[in-house]
């Protein structure tokens, strides 16, 4: 086994994410189709048809193929640890031409676009070092339209959970059709400004319909899901019952003076895939 095998599987993982929407998301969209009427139903129907076309033709489901974002749980004794960043970067470059992906990395100061979806800090990788010799890589290609709707509130702690609910509902309803609803909303609470946003985005890795293990957090997720869907924003913001497919919350302990709330928004194209690599370099998209 070699770096090339791992790279091949990572290219395949990017292809999988860009062309095959996970089943949990498709099921949630199918449920939305059953309950929607009029223009909202037309939108969800087009989304489902699009998912089918993408799966059959291998064309990326959305022209915004996103910024390639990786979450890695890697064993401290994984033999390829030192080379993994280079392998991932090469896989992204290759995928850009092979799938293909839209050239989505732009230098903010010069406007230069290298054309291969890599650049300063991109692909964006979050490392989680664990005990062991194996490695799991989660991929989350993140589109710009929904990313533009992410938000941070360094809320006064005195506003409490009611304040949190109000901020989340007002923000997501205020986004209207811009993040391509029905969306999946990831909320990170606590930590600091950066950590809350990071946890919010990381929570998007969880399957749609899967609740937080702590019952009172799970309950809050369900309550927010229900409240936001009472707004009537609907699919693509044309009015309807399904504004969000799910709400996920992750939290960290907070400083007594701070109550950070980070909201990460993911469009209906909640694209994800996972690669597992054994210590001898055997990689598999799962």
């Amino acid at each position: 086994m070699s770096n090339k095998d791992i790279e091949d599987q990572l290219v395949e993982a990017i292809r999988r994410a860009e062309t095959q929407l996970p089943n949990d998301v498709v099921s949630a969209l199918e449920k939305a189709y059953e309950v929607e009427e009029g223009p909202a139903r037309v939108q969800v129907e087009a989304i489902l048809e699009n998912i089918k076309v993408s799966r059959e033709t291998g064309a990326p489901m959305c022209q915004d193929t996103g910024i390639q974002t990786f979450y890695i749980e890697v064993g401290a004794d994984f033999p390829y640890l030192g080379e993994l960043k280079d392998i991932i970067t090469n896989a992204v470059k290759r995928a850009s031409g092979e799938i293909p992906l839209r050239p989505n990395t732009v230098n903010p100061f010069t406007g230069e676009n290298p054309g291969n979806n890599v650049g300063n800090y991109v692909p964006y990788i979050t490392w989680d070092i664990v005990k062991g010799e194996e490695c799991t890589i989660h991929l989350l290609p993140k589109g710009g339209g929904s990313e533009n709707m992410c938000a941070l509130n360094m809320m006064a702690p005195g506003k409490g959970i009611k304040g949190l609910k109000r901020f989340v509902v007002d923000h997501i309803v205020g986004c209207g059709g811009k993040p391509c609803p029905p969306t999946v909303v990831g909320i990170g609470v606590g930590g600091g400004a950066d950590l809350s946003l990071k946890l919010g985005k990381k929570s998007l890795l969880r399957d749609v319909g899967v609740r937080h293990p702590e019952p009172h957090i799970a309950e809050l997720e369900e309550e927010l899901l229900k409240l936001i869907n009472e707004s009537g924003v609907g699919p693509m913001g044309v009015g309807g019952k399904t504004t969000v497919l799910d709400v996920h919350i992750e939290y960290a302990h907070r400083h007594p003076a701070s109550f950070p709330i980070g909201i990460a928004v993911q469009c209906w194209a909640d694209r994800r895939s996972t690669v597992r690599i054994t210590k001898d370099g055997r990689a598999e998209v799962i």
């Binding site: 989304i47 699009n50 993408s54 022209q63 915004d64 059709g177």
Partner: peptide, 29 residues
């Protein structure tokens, strides 16, 4: 996608044009 606001709405009326919404993300379709 997502709609436009009053300045565009007035210009559409003046020119005799419409804004139509296409499903966001439906790139393959």
């Amino acid at each position: 996608k997502g709609g436009m606001a009053d300045r565009t709405l007035k210009a559409l009326e003046e020119v005799g044009a419409v804004y139509v919404h296409y499903t966001g993300g439906a790139g393959a379709l």
